[in-house]
Computed example of a mutant assay.
Amino acid sequence: MSGILKTSIARKFAMALSGLFLVLFLAQHFTINFTSVVSPDTFNEISHFMGTNFLVQAILQPVLIFGVVFHFIMGFVLEIKNNKARVVKYKNYNGGANAPWVSRNMIISGAVVLAFLGLHFYDFWIHEMQVKYLQGDMSGLNAAGEFRYYEETVAKFAGQPVRLGIYVLSFVFLMLHLLHGFASSFQTVGFNNKYSKGLKVFTKAFAIVIPLGFAFIAIFHYINNL
């Protein structure tokens, strides 16, 4: 792997592919989470399937974790390499005149998203691992004999304004990260044809709608349980 990623082009290409992979996960994750707003029963059923299916747990989940770690490590590597490559720095250089803030500060938005993922993993993934593998409870049921996923999700936001604020702020930074990263990923892998203009519109819409959708879900569960 280290040999393959020795060149700058290879690193950027790998970064773009991992980013596109994570975008697919975001779309799937949002679709599942949004069912918690419209149908708690559907959310419970899908969550139980995702949490107990062997293919998801043993194959897709490790691949996802690797993708997240790889993407962020590669992002930091590219940032370090880019900084070292800037031998000549102009004293009066105005970065904003050459590139928008989001493209010049991907490392900042990425770092915030990474910190948020740590909280999100603590809130949900670690809890699931404890229940399923430490406590040995694979049923997904609560004390009343009902699926527990919806009530546990709601409990993270009900009466939790600080956690809600952190989640919403993190989704704003996710939006900023996607506004540049999603579109540039396609450019990096060489997607440049008559559909490029339409694809750019789609990536911008996705970058805005999906993070706002996640924020809406969190706010909905907070307000709905005041």
Rank of each mutant, 00 (worst) to 15 (best):
K6V: 08
N53Q: 04
F191N: 06
N98I: 04
I210T: 04
V23R: 08
H180F: 12
Y149N: 06
F191Y: 15
K81F: 06
V69C: 14
L174W: 03
H177T: 02
F191W: 14
R148D: 01
K12H: 00
V113R: 02
I219Y: 08
I65L: 14
G75T: 05
N105K: 12
F202Y: 13
F206R: 00
A218N: 12
V88D: 09
F25S: 04
F49P: 01
T203N: 10
F216N: 07
H48Q: 12
Q187S: 03
T52Y: 08
G198T: 07
G67Y: 08
I65Y: 03
M50A: 01
M15W: 10
E128S: 13
A97D: 13
V38Y: 06
Q61D: 12
F54P: 14
A215Y: 00
K197H: 06
F171I: 06
N53K: 13
I59D: 08
V68N: 06
F157A: 14
S184E: 10
I223D: 03
N193K: 02
F214I: 05
M50C: 05
F13M: 07
T31D: 01
N92D: 09
I219C: 02
I32P: 03
G145K: 00
A207Y: 15
H29K: 02
F25K: 09
L114W: 08
V63N: 10
F121P: 01
T203L: 06
H120G: 03
F202W: 15
Q130P: 02
F54L: 11
H71R: 09
V168L: 07
F216I: 12
G136S: 09
I217W: 09
L24D: 09
R86N: 11
F191M: 14
D123C: 03
S184R: 14
Y93L: 14
V87I: 13
P62T: 07
F30R: 05
A158S: 08
N142E: 10
G67Q: 06
F13A: 02
V69H: 09
T153M: 15
R104P: 01
R11K: 15
G136Q: 09
A144H: 11
F21Y: 15
M1D: 10
F171N: 04
K81D: 15
G51Y: 13
D41H: 10
G159F: 05
Q28W: 07
Q61A: 11
L24G: 14
F171M: 09
V23L: 15
V88L: 07
T42I: 12
A10Q: 04
S139K: 14
N193M: 09
N225H: 14
I4V: 03
L134F: 14
S36W: 01
E146H: 05
I126P: 02
F124Y: 14
L226N: 07
L199C: 01
M1E: 13
F186H: 04
P211D: 02
A111H: 11
N94E: 14
N225I: 04
G190P: 06
K6Q: 12
V87S: 11
Q130T: 06
V113W: 02
S109P: 04
Y90D: 01
H48L: 05
W101R: 00
W101S: 00
N225M: 04
S109A: 14
F157Y: 15
G165N: 01
G165L: 13
G190L: 07
F70R: 03
Q187N: 14
F49V: 06
F216P: 00
G213N: 08
F216S: 12
N53F: 08
L119Q: 09
G145V: 03
H29P: 13
S36V: 03
